[in-house]
Design a protein around this nucleic acid. Structure first.
Ligand SMILES: [Mn+2]
Ligand SMILES: [Mn+2]
Ligand SMILES: [Zn+2]
Ligand SMILES: [Zn+2]
Lengths: 133, 133
DNA sequence: TTCTAATTAAGAATGATTATCCGAAAGAGG
DNA sequence: CCTCTTTCGGATAATCATTCTTAATTAGAA
C-alpha cells in the first residue's frame, strides 16, 4: 500500500544527490541513462514528483527554465546569476520572524516563504570586466 | 527605430492594469479578445515580453503555472494560497539590508530579491474549517 | 505622401511536463 | 510456491505554455 522502492526510484534520488546543484529533470535523466539506458524520461518525472510528495526532495521553480530539484531539505534561500543562470544555495538563516509578521498583516495561515536573490556571480563579474563592462 | 505604439500594445498594457491581480498571458488574451477579436495570442506574448523589457511591466514566475504579469513597478513581495492558488501582493517594505548582507557573503553584485510567501488564505481557512479541517 | 523597418495574425514548432496504455514485477495472503 | 491485487515502468501520445516563421500590414520618420 506504500511506495515501492524500485531501482529507478533509487537511481533518481541518487542522481539528484550526486548532481548537487539543483538539477533539472532532463539533467537527472542524462545522468542516469548512461548507467541504466533503459530508463525513460517519464519515469524520471514521475519519480521526481513522487519524491517531492514524500518529502525526500524539494522542487524549485525558476523563471524561464525547467523546474529544479533540491535534495537539501532544510529551509534555505537561493541566488541566481542574471548573466550565466547559475542557481546556488545561500548560506544564511531562515527568517522565521517575517513569516509571523506577514501572517499577522495578511491573516493567512502561514506556511513558509522562499527568497530568490538575483545578481551577477563573481565569475561573470570578471568576464564582464574584461569585455569593458 | 524605437518601439511602435500599436493598438495591440496599448490593449495589452491596459489589460494587465485593469485585470489587477497578476494575470497570465492567457488571461490577458481572453480579456482583450472580447473587445478586439482579431488579436492573436502570439501578439499578446510578444507585447507582454516587450513591455517587461521596456520596464513597464514585471514578470513573475510561479511554480506549477504560467508566468504572471505585474503592472506595479515598485519592488514588493507576493503571497500564494497553497489551497486555491490566489496570488496577491504583500504590503510591507522591501528588505534592502538583506541584499547588502547576501552581497557580502556571496560576492555577487546584487541586483534584487523576490520573496514568495506561502500559506492558506482567510477564505480557504473558512472553507477548510467547515469541512472539518 | 512615400518609404521602410517594426509589427501583425495565423499557425507551425518547440520545450517541458503529464497522461495513457499495457505488460512486468512486488507484496499480501493462503 | 500460487494467486490476486496493486504499483510501477517503458513507450509514446497528448497537453500546456511559449516561441518561431511567414507573408501581409502599418506606424512613424523623412
Ligand atoms: Mn538549494
Ligand atoms: Mn505584485
Ligand atoms: Zn554567472
Ligand atoms: Zn485560498
Amino acid at each position: 500500500m506504500g511506495k515501492r522502492n524500485t531501482i529507478q526510484r533509487q537511481l533518481v534520488i541518487a542522481a539528484v544527490r550526486t548532481l548537487e546543484n539543483h538539477p533539472t529533470a532532463e539533467e537527472v535523466y542524462n545522468c542516469i541513462v548512461t548507467e541504466y539506458p533503459d530508463i525513460s524520461k517519464g519515469t524520471v518525472y514521475r519519480n521526481l514528483n513522487s519524491l517531492v510528495e514524500t518529502g525526500l526532495l524539494n522542487k524549485v521553480a525558476v523563471p524561464n527554465g525547467a523546474d529544479r530539484f533540491d535534495h537539501i531539505l532544510a529551509r534555505h534561500y537561493h541566488i541566481e546569476c542574471t548573466n550565466c543562470g547559475a542557481f546556488s544555495d545561500v548560506d544564511t538563516e531562515y527568517l522565521e520572524d517575517i513569516d509571523l509578521k506577514i501572517a499577522n498583516s495578511t491573516k493567512y495561515k502561514m506556511d513558509n516563504h522562499d527568497i530568490v536573490f538575483r545578481g551577477v556571480c563573481p565569475k561573470c563579474q570578471e568576464i564582464l570586466k574584461q569585455q569593458g563592462h
